[in-house]
């Protein structure tokens, strides 16, 4: 199967300012790709290049096997802009019908169903929509024609937590249906639960592409055991991956790097009454990618 997105040396300069440099990556069919980076890192630039809103300074991009300039390919994409501007006296429902018309129509009742699902009031004039409601209209227009490829730029901004959950469910459904999703964010927590892979971009460069499952495996995890009787510290000392070990009477706490297998097997020798394992802190790994440049800068200075 051909990649949904394939870029090679994709570069964009705005005058002398670097927007994106030498981006080579691919997005595979059926995956949810989280595109992470701080504001101004080049996420939106990448997305705009893929949609032919702007043109690359160098390099090539192919989307769904075609050049971004090919207008027909955009018919197979659903796009939510990062800074969605909607204005005028037109009602949101009218605008959505117009967009649907240009896209060759959508299934009957589809717009209304999505509107209900996201609790969006579509009878409001566009100029009077709140930020959250604008974002909902943006999501509806991106999803309504059931596109093969969804490009969502900061999709959760402005949404309240309940609607965010609903949105994440929609992304999961899209993946189950075999569609491909590219979603950007500056917070890992927003994308880690739905993404298969994440790309991390910083200062216009892609610094890492990681498998989320692998990232989780590598991640540092806090574990706590409570036993029915005091346990000897020696039993837990020196286990692979175990750090910050603390044995206090009947409880053992530590952080664990990688697989918890050895630790579990030692703990199983005693009677466990309670166990706590915190979610692996991907944010921490993520931050190390971010801080690397800062670190280098310090060394350089």
């Amino acid at each position: 199967m051909t990649a949904v997105v394939e870029t090679e040396g994709l570069t964009k300069f705005y005058g002398k300012r670097r927007g994106l440099e030498d981006l080579t990556f691919e997005i595979r069919p059926g995956e949810v790709f989280g595109y992470l980076g701080p504001n101004g890192a080049g996420k939106t630039t990448t997305i705009r290049l893929l949609l032919d809103v702007i043109r690359p300074t160098r390099g090539v991009a192919r989307v769904l096997g075609a050049e971004p300039r090919d207008a027909a390919v955009r018919g197979r994409i659903g796009y939510l802009p990062g800074e969605l501007a909607l204005e005028g006296r037109e009602k949101a429902s009218e605008y959505l019908r117009f967009l649907a018309g240009v896209r060759g129509g959508v299934a009957k009742g589809r717009i209304e169903a999505l509107g209900e699902r996201l609790e969006a009031d579509l009878s409001v004039k566009m100029g009077q929509l709140s930020k959250g409601n604008k974002q909902k209209v943006g999501l509806i227009q991106a999803f309504m024609h059931e596109p093969e490829f969804l490009i969502l730029d900061e999709p959760t901004s402005g949404l309240d937590p309940l609607v965010q959950q609903e949105f994440l469910a929609m992304v999961r459904e899209a993946r189950t249906a075999g569609r491909t999703v590219l979603m950007s964010s500056h917070v890992l927590a927003e994308v880690e639960h739905v993404s298969d892979r994440v790309g991390i971009v910083r200062g216009g460069r892609l610094v890492a592409v990681e498998d989320v499952a692998a990232l989780r495996e590598k991640a540092v995890r806090r574990v706590e055991f409570h036993f029915d009787a005091p346990v000897p510290e020696e039993a837990f000392r020196g286990l692979p991956g175990v750090r910050d070990l603390k044995v206090e009477g009947t409880s053992v706490s530590c952080t664990i790097d990688g697989r918890p297998d050895a630790l579990i097997k030692v703990a199983a020798r005693f009677t466990v009454v309670h166990m706590v394992s915190a979610e692996p802190d991907l944010e921490e790994i993520f931050l190390t990618y971010y801080s690397e440049d800062v670190h280098h800068a310090h060394v350089g200075a």
Partner: peptide, 9 residues
């Protein structure tokens, strides 16, 4: 921007 990303030349 949104108009431009429609399948329109």
């Amino acid at each position: 921007e949104l108009t431009l990303t429609l399948p329109l030349d």
